[in-house]
Design a protein around this nucleic acid. Structure first.
Lengths: 145, 145
DNA sequence: TGGGATTTTATGGGCGTCAATGGGATTTCA
DNA sequence: TGAAATCCCATTGACGCCCATAAAATCCCA
């Protein structure tokens, strides 16, 4: 299964349109899909996306009951905010305003491949996150030595 | 399995193109691949590369969850910066600008074989590293004698 | 074994194609 | 009928693909 990897920064235009990087489109279209499924991250100021197939099992994770079940919380929150965004003829998606707000996007957006999924970040926020992650990795490595 | 070994210095041209040394190409093509997978090192000012097959299990190292996990940090950082660079008809790759910047490359790049993978260094930085390594070896040897 | 011929490598440059982007026209829905 | 969403086309800049050259390594045969 081809994966999402690499980082690509594209522009968000006045209409809220954003080109999905060609390598990511190749993954999506390689599965016969013509849209991407995107939702705001529950924990970070970014969006998360993949082919819609990634979220199909989410439905099955929700216990179908008439009594509220706390174990369903995360899946239910994601389902509630999940959107299927069609790719236009040029490979772009239109980001809903709420998504732009949640990820604090301005005129640029960075697609970050993470294997089965990808994230969309405001570029400067992504830089800060990467610095923090690298610090954690370096600290953990030093601990081993 | 054939390994990467030896050091080869080639030019980075105005287009950011860089010839992959023929012996390294032989390793790659011996596995039926037509591209190299490269990412900046997390620990040093250099790039690391291999056939893409070396990175295929990286995806499975990332726990697929909607909750961030620090244990995924290293794999996520590499996945985010990993690029698959196709070899052109003459056995060259085009280095992205970020890669050139991260490794401080100017007009030359040194391929250094490391067995399963190889590194790409700015030649003078490589010299400094080799000196330092040799010093450590000598110091350790003196301690033994 | 020497030396010329051939092949392989590394490198430079030109050109066509495609990706990314912007703007306008058309449709859709309230 | 107005606002928003969708579609279509134009531009431009990057990238892939092709060929040309030169140097180095290899081969081959007398």
């Amino acid at each position: 299964m081809k994966a999402f990897f690499g980082t690509f920064v594209n522009k968000v235009d006045a209409k809220g349109r954003l080109s999905v990087p060609a390598p990511f489109r190749a993954v999506i279209q390689g599965r016969g899909l013509t849209s991407v499924a995107i939702h705001p991250s529950l924990f970070e100021s970014c969006l998360e996306g993949a082919g819609f197939d990634r979220f199909e099992n989410l439905e099955s994770q929700i216990t179908d009951t008439f009594v509220p079940a706390p174990s369903n919380d995360a899946a239910e929150l994601i389902m509630a905010e999940l959107r299927e965004l069609p790719l236009d003829g040029e490979g772009r998606v239109v980001l809903p305003d709420e998504f732009i707000a949640k990820a604090h996007l301005k005129d640029q957006a960075a697609f970050v491949g993470q294997g089965r999924k990808f994230q969309i970040w405001e570029p400067s926020a992504l830089e800060a996150l990467k610095k923090a992650k690298l610090q954690r990795v370096l600290a953990a490595t030093k601990g081993d030595a």
